[in-house]
Design a protein around this nucleic acid. Structure first.
Length: 689
DNA sequence: TGGCCAATACTG
DNA sequence: CAGTAT
DNA sequence: GCCA
């Protein structure tokens, strides 16, 4: 359709590139006097749509070009500058932004979405003087400060919004633009809108980016990875890098240790698909079919299945799941695939792998055969096949691919920002075009939410594992403050990963309660304030006081009903914690009185009324799948609704007391297990992942 | 083949 | 309302 | 991806 059209490397204006005789446009729009046009394919559905649109442009006499070094106009659906420059670069077109566009009058389309602001990154982690309350506000101030002082690096300041000189009538408003040699990236809508109006619209409101073509910059070093921040960062890196490395090692070590080398290497035979899903009588068929040559020889005797397998017990809360199961290495591979599902937004996949993994984690024997897996709830042919591959080769291609995928690696980086989920991580990558934290800071700082800014700021520190002893210190401090604020009747318990026995914790979760209900009312606010005052809490990411609020309302309206507490959720505060007592290292006295380098920690403080504290403890102590299955179990067997703030009958809405009488939080939790017909599981048996 | 993995609060 | 967190 |  087009080869003739875009070859034009001749001067733009005169190349009245008439379209093929046949297709005269219905529109009278003529673009033939404009410079060559390039259409960026980003965000177009498929190549066909792109071709169609190219045809549209050609029909108007537009001079299509595929060479960015001759095109002066680029039409795109991408909106962010960052992404635009990336697109250009991918076509081997390196540019430098030119901010001032033309000499005469620059219209002020106050809405220009691309009036880019680049927040200077500069001070990231660890760079802030702690001073006292370096609260959220201070961050925001820093932000705005940064962004104001900045933006100056281009000689011509950006959109110094000059008022339009109402350049009269039909002077060509584009002329001043096309008199310069810069490449102009316009919103695609410029074309479609022009089509609609049958005239060449001023490009100005659609101008996203204007760039001057420069030589391909040398990149002598591209440190790329190793640290979340690239060399651009001023922050001293050694600590951060080590920190990150530690964190990563920690994640993989307990799992990877268990070697699988004994398993592999059965012949060189390729494992194609030993287990296949067949619509009917799938399982039976599978059990007899296949496997003979793939099951590593030890074909016949399977170990005796644990009771929960034999009895079709499928909820993770009904079985024991240790932290270091025999098949941890295999599970680690599945975790990689699961992460890929997570990052790509495949929630169903995440769910499925979580279930499979939980079952495998509860399985007490080292797997010997793919067939075994088929017996486990939540596991079927896919998982069995993955196991066979793992057994034969010691690795799983799909997992390796996921792990090495550049795009996923970057998205994972973003996902690890507190306050950034999979969707946003993908958005950062795909739409914004960011590739590392520097990009986030530099190009998007002001678009981040407050908590995301905090998440970025302490990115590395939040990834650091917290030793148990420090968890205990933090808990003791919180407990102490609670007692001070109320009385010695306060009880507290560290839950989360700590309670499950993890050596290193990702955060600290602590539940506070008091046998007297009135003593927990509004205590969350008081505790945060008190801890803030003593500088333990540096930021409050989120505080939820709904229960207390409701309590007060109920009390106000109905002063007689002290027990009318409809529990919905627990009061809680998610905060950033830092030990304010910095002990300067003797070896490095230079930073002695300089700054507190104690790492910032994520701490969740949860308040529970005593009468539901068992539910709170239970709801906060298990692994994710344990909790999920607990809710499913409770729904399925009783049609109740389990919540960390209590249990209710789904039909009547009535509160069901599962807590019973208890003197301690642990006892209360045991009561809940019993009341729900569950065998008690120690916290360290709830490591479902 | 469709449903599933819960439930709730806060933020922008 | 979508997104994220617990 | 598993299951009813």
């Amino acid at each position: 359709m087009s080869s003739a059209h875009w070859m034009a490397s001749s001067p733009p204006q005169d190349t009245v590139q008439e379209t093929a005789p046949g297709n005269m446009p219905k529109s009278s729009l003529r673009l033939s006097s404009l410079p060559p046009i390039f259409i960026s394919e980003s965000h177009f559905k498929d190549i066909n749509e792109l071709h169609r649109l190219e045809d549209d442009v050609v029909e108007t006499g537009g001079l299509l070009s595929y060479n960015l070094h001759e095109a002066k106009i680029v039409l795109t659906r991408v909106l962010s500058k960052k992404r635009i420059t990336m697109d250009l670069r991918s076509k081997d077109c390196y540019t430098e932004e030119v901010l001032v566009v033309k000499d005469i009058s620059v219209a002020d389309t106050g809405t220009d979405p691309a009036a880019g602001h680049k927040a200077k990154r500069g001070k990231l982690s660890g760079e802030y003087e702690d001073g006292k309350k370096e609260t959220e506000e201070s961050i925001l101030h820093e932000v705005s400060t940064d962004s104001e002082n900045e933006d100056e690096h281009k000689p011509k300041n950006r959109s110094t919004k000059r008022k339009r000189v109402a350049s009269s009538v039909e002077q060509d408003p584009n002329k001043a633009y096309f008199s310069n040699p810069y490449i102009k990236v316009l919103k695609w809508e410029w074309f479609t809108d022009s089509q609609k109006q049958d005239r060449v619209l001023p490009i100005e409101p659609y101008l996203l980016y204007q760039g001057q073509i420069i030589d391909k910059p040398e990149d002598p070093k591209t440190p790329g990875k190793g640290s979340s921040f690239t060399a651009r960062t001023k922050t001293p890196q050694s600590i951060l890098e080590r920190a990150r490395a530690d964190a990563e090692n920690d994640t993989s070590s307990p799992v990877q240790q268990r070697s699988n080398r004994k398993l592999g290497q059965i012949g060189g035979g390729r494992v194609s698909a030993p287990f296949q899903t067949t619509p009917h009588s799938k399982r039976a068929a599978l059990l007899h079919q296949t496997t003979s040559e793939h099951d590593l020889g030890q074909s016949s005797d399977l170990p005796e299945m644990p009771p929960w397998v034999q009895n079709d017990v499928k909820y993770a809360c009904q079985r024991s799941t240790p932290a270091d199961p025999p098949n941890a290495a295999f599970i680690a591979q599945l975790d990689k695939i699961k992460l890929a599902r997570l990052l790509t937004g495949d929630e169903i996949g995440v769910r499925a792998y979580s279930t499979s993994i939980a079952a495998l984690a509860a399985y007490p024997h080292k797997l010997s055969t793919g067939r075994e897996i088929l017996l486990l709830p939540g596991c079927d042919a896919k998982i069995a096949n993955l196991y066979v591959e793992f057994a034969n080769y010691g690795k799983i291609q799909e997992a390796e691919d996921a792990e090495n995928n550049e795009e996923l690696k970057v998205q994972k980086l973003f996902y690890n920002i507190w306050g950034v989920g999979a969707t946003t991580a993908r958005d950062f990558y795909k739409e914004k075009g960011w590739r590392d934290l520097d990009d986030v800071v530099e190009y998007g700082w002001q678009t981040l939410t407050r908590v995301q800014q905090i998440g970025v700021k302490y990115y590395d520190e939040f990834l650091l594992p917290i030793p148990r002893s420090e968890v205990e210190d933090i808990a003791a401090t919180i407990h102490k403050h609670a007692v001070k604020l109320r009385d010695a009747g306060i009880q507290s318990l560290v839950v989360g990963g700590y309670r499950r026995g993890k050596e290193h914790c990702g955060d600290v979760d602590i539940i506070l309660s008091h046998p007297e209900e009135s003593k927990t009312l509004n205590i969350i606010t008081d505790i945060v304030a008190s801890l803030e005052q003593e500088s333990w809490i540096t930021h409050t990411l989120l505080i939820s006081t709904k229960t207390s609020d409701r309590g007060q309302q109920t009390l106000a309206l109905n002063s007689s009903s002290t027990h009318g507490h409809g529990f919905d959720s627990l009061d809680k505060a998610l905060v950033v914690w830092q030990n304010p007592h910095y002990i300067p290292s003797t070896s490095n006295p230079s930073d002695s009185k300089t700054k507190n380098t104690n790492p910032h920690r994520r701490v969740d403080i949860i308040i529970s009324p005593w009468k539901t504290v068992g539910c709170a403890v239970m709801g906060w102590s298990g692994g994710t799948t344990f909790q999920r299955d607990l809710r499913r179990y409770v729904r399925q067997t009783y049609d109740y609704k389990f919540d960390s703030s209590g249990v209710r009958d789904r039909k009547t809405g009535d509160v069901v007391d599962v807590d019973g009488e208890a003197g301690t939080m642990e006892q209360a939790e045991r009561n809940v297990f019993g009341a729900l017909g569950l065998e008690f599981r120690e916290p360290w048996e709830r490591c479902t992942g």
